[in-house]
């Protein structure tokens, strides 16, 4: 792996806050729980919109115009998840930066997911107003859910490939 990345990882994991988290019995799991709580809000608000676009659920209910209203909570969840994720990363940055599953997750899957997410967020208000959800909206909604599932897959695989 690129030498400068490893030097950066080494520097990061020796920051006082990273050492403090690593050295404490309770801090690390609490940071993990923070990451997961943020992810729940992030993925949950995404799923609510995508599921609504897919039109699944009760047929009798009209399409929901959710994307605008969930926007703030969506990004609050993202901010919590990134904060928790960054702290987890800091604790063993050097190891993560040489882990192919982590690099794929952070370098490829998350950027892709974010691009698709922002596109959906911009288009969703129009899609949601249409009397019939356009096919492209359904494809986008399904693709986004699958893409975040891939992100979770890469995350779970980090210890398996490390």
């Amino acid at each position: 792996m690129d030498g400068s990345l490893v030097i950066f990882g080494h520097w990061l994991q020796n920051r006082p806050y990273a050492l403090a988290i690593a050295g404490s019995d309770w801090a690390y799991p609490l940071v993990q729980a923070t990451h997961f709580t943020g992810l729940s809000i992030w993925i949950g608000t995404i799923a609510a919109v995508d599921v609504s676009l897919l039109g699944a659920g009760k047929r009798s209910t009209p399409p929901m115009q959710l994307s605008d209203e969930l926007l703030i909570w969506n990004w609050i969840g993202f901010a919590i998840a990134v904060t928790g994720g960054f702290l987890l990363f800091s604790v063993s940055a050097e190891t993560y930066l040489t882990n192919i599953a982590f690099l794929t997750k952070l370098g490829l899957l998350i950027p892709l997911g974010l691009v698709l997410h922002v596109v959906i967020q911009r288009k969703a208000p129009a899609w949601e107003k249409a009397s019939e959800t356009p096919p492209v909206a359904k494809v986008a909604g399904l693709a986004e859910l699958l893409l975040w599932l891939c992100v979770a897959t890469a995350a779970v695989l980090i210890p398996y490939v490390g």
């Binding site: 729940s40 992030w42 949950g44 609510a48 909570w73 695989l157």
Partner: peptide, 24 residues
């Protein structure tokens, strides 16, 4: 390894959706 990982992925992802939607 791969089935254990698959089970873990399902557990985490379903938890995110479950908790996230309930929070909404």
């Amino acid at each position: 390894a791969w089935t254990a990982a698959a089970v873990e992925i399902v557990h985490y992802f379903s938890m995110f959706i479950l908790v996230g939607l309930m929070v909404i």
